[in-house]
Design a protein around this nucleic acid. Structure first.
Lengths: 236, 236
DNA sequence: GATCACAACTCGTCCGCACAAGTGGATGAG
DNA sequence: CTCATCCACTTGTGCGGACGAGTTGTGATC
């Protein structure tokens, strides 16, 4: 079964698309709430909720008694691409999983997980493909206790992302992620999978639950020629 | 005249105070919406709006069908280190400046500055040292119009950072910065300056004024073995 | 005892309506 | 012309009701 997104989200998307397409340019006044009600066939409650959410996200500005005005696509630190979160969130397609099973934890992973080096953990390694080119090698390391009873140690592709799977099966909740990015030469194995030994962006991330415990470690190798991490931020 | 804050804000404050006082402890379930409606004498619309806003701000968590649960006072994510901003902010020490003067803009810089390739611009290249090791090659590209009258084209070290210098002399204000990070092999020149041709983090940043005009471009080569960019962020 | 259906609760969304309050142009008195 | 007033518009807030959907306990049934 598939679900239609809620109406207020549909209204938001409709307006966002008109802003991105240039139909509503920055500075323009949006149609009034009552106009949108008539045009979109929804209640004013719904329109107001959509507009207020857009205002909170920085797309528009609302002035009491005057109208709503376009500001443009919001640039916030929040919409930065977080490669580790993408990895945890995306489902898997056929053939993506290279390896999934129990492995002694290497030192750098053991330290981040807070276990002794060599402790058996579940490692799940997969390939991200982009137009038939391998665009990333993703390895997820999970302590046995958290992987127990999940499908993470099975080579079959997951239909939902790892985060949703862990939440549904084990009620584990992600709270925050610490991500460290560096540049390095790919390991032998990564070079073979990527078909190149050019420099890669190495991302090493720890995923924490609300109590601060480390749920898992994500390690990524992103070929420098294919990936750029973009970030826009205000100067104080 | 003084105004009473809107009711939904009063409801928010009431719940925040109960969380801060410990009456509602983290993990506790809040009273249900209908209970709060009776207790506070407001409509459910108002209670729902207050609770949804608190959830967006991270005070509580709402689970469909189960209830609302206390998370605690929200904490904003730690600020990330912005290498390009550091570069623009720091002063220079003796011998740091490798080169400063007029150069035809290379293609990738010209595109970011919005000028034709080969247009003369000011390039200022310097080295960051850390315990006598060259830890970064920093190049700043500035259109002639912005560099005119400044000391940016002179090889003498600046006592203040580039940002303060531009603001004091030319009244230019930084508003936001777009930063793109990738992994690459250092150029011939960078490799010589760094004394190594190991992979580097390549940072390419454009600095914008409040109107969105590009004030300058910053290009950094950070050896992967010496630099890690760390970032902590909340998961939705 | 295990299983299933159901009721009673939760939050999620949506509607129509109402009134307050801010803005700006039209209108008419002076 | 100047100014106050009014009116038509805008958004802000609030209410009650309705229905959907997820969760959990309870009790009947097998």
């Amino acid at each position: 079964m598939d679900f239609a997104p809620p109406k207020y989200a549909q209204v938001m998307r409709a307006i966002q698309e008109r802003i991105e397409s240039g139909e509503y340019a920055p500075g323009d006044m949006l149609p009034s709430e009552t106009q949108l009600v008539r045009e979109l066939g929804v209640g004013r409650t719904t329109v107001v909720r959509a507009l207020q959410t857009l205002a909170m996200q920085g797309w528009i500005e609302r002035e009491h008694g005057r109208g709503s005005f376009v500001k443009g696509r919001p640039q916030s630190a929040a919409d930065r691409v977080r490669p580790s979160l993408m990895t945890a969130e995306q489902g898997e397609s056929a053939g993506a999983v290279v390896e999934a099973g129990r492995i002694p934890a290497p030192r750098h992973v053991a330290r981040l997980l807070g276990v002794a080096e060599g402790t058996p953990v579940i490692a799940r390694k997969r390939l991200a493909r982009n137009a038939d080119v391998v665009s990333a090698v993703e390895t997820v390391w999970i302590p046995l206790e958290h992987a127990l009873g999940t499908d993470l140690d099975k080579p079959e592709p997951l239909r939902r992302g790892i985060r949703q799977h862990l939440q549904a099966v084990k009620h584990l909740r992600f709270d925050h992620i610490t991500e460290r990015v560096s540049a390095r030469t790919p390991t032998q194995e990564e070079a073979e999978l990527l078909g190149s030994s050019n420099p890669v962006l190495g991302v090493l991330a720890t995923v924490h639950d609300p109590a601060g415990n480390v749920l898992m470690v994500v390690s990524l190798a992103l070929p420098g020629s294919l990936h750029e991490l973009e970030d826009v931020f205000k100067v104080s």
